[in-house]
Amino acid sequence: MLEIKNITKTFSSPPGEVWTLKDISLTVEKGEFVSIIGPSGCGKSTLFNIISGLERPDRGKVLLSGQDITGQKGHTAYMLQKDLLLPWRTVLDNCILGLEVQGVARDVGRKRAEALLPEFGLEGFARSFPVVLSGGMRQRVAFLRTMLQGKEILLLDEPFGSLDAFTKGEMHGWLLKIWEKYHPTVLFITHDVDEALLLSDRVYVLSTRPATVKLDVEVKLERPRFRDLITEDKFVKLKKLLLEALAQNKPHS
């Protein structure tokens, strides 16, 4: 279980202080898929940077199974907002990057990754370089690289933000299948309400900067889920709830 407790963060940048996160608390149970949704620039990535240990909060704690891991690296596998595939590594070698950093021998890592390629829709591309991949494939490589790190928590920062609607839909179906099979604990950033509801067990809505938790919704829709869920009444009701919370966010106009 991952607990974020009363996280506050302010950046001091040249024009002045930027108050980004204000007293954020949230919980992710083991095996849960939790989404964070919020307006652009509200501090979602900053929150992930803090959970992953890249940055320290001004106040507050990050607890993993009750243990304080604030500011520590290596407890989470973080998929950053950009796919960040290394252009000089083949698809297979990009997948094993995390393992290599952990000191796993290359051929051992390669074998483990290779076995997973078909499931990730990357069969036959093991030895290609990232330049030849489509946007969806790049995201799947980045996701496999994240999963292979074998961490308790996966932090996914808008993994499908740059994809077209059609590819995004495909990726949702695919991710649901993968999640169903491996049940990783996922914390997922998005600003797509449909995406958040379709994938998650719980959705946190953040406000504009300084971000606070505006709403915390449990998504009690039965699994396995499929894309056509988004037209059902239960789904639409939840969607209205989230959209309202987000609309209140708008700076007074």
Binding site: L54, K73, G74, T76, Y78, L80, L84, V101
Partner: peptide, 25 residues
């Protein structure tokens, strides 16, 4: 720099960052 950041989240040492990202980059 985001590539370096990625390696840092993976727990890479400065030597590993050099070998895996900076030299080839």
């Amino acid at each position: 720099q985001d590539m370096v950041k990625l390696l840092v989240t993976m727990g890479a040492t400065p030597g590993q960052i050099l070998r895996l990202v900076k030299f080839p980059g």
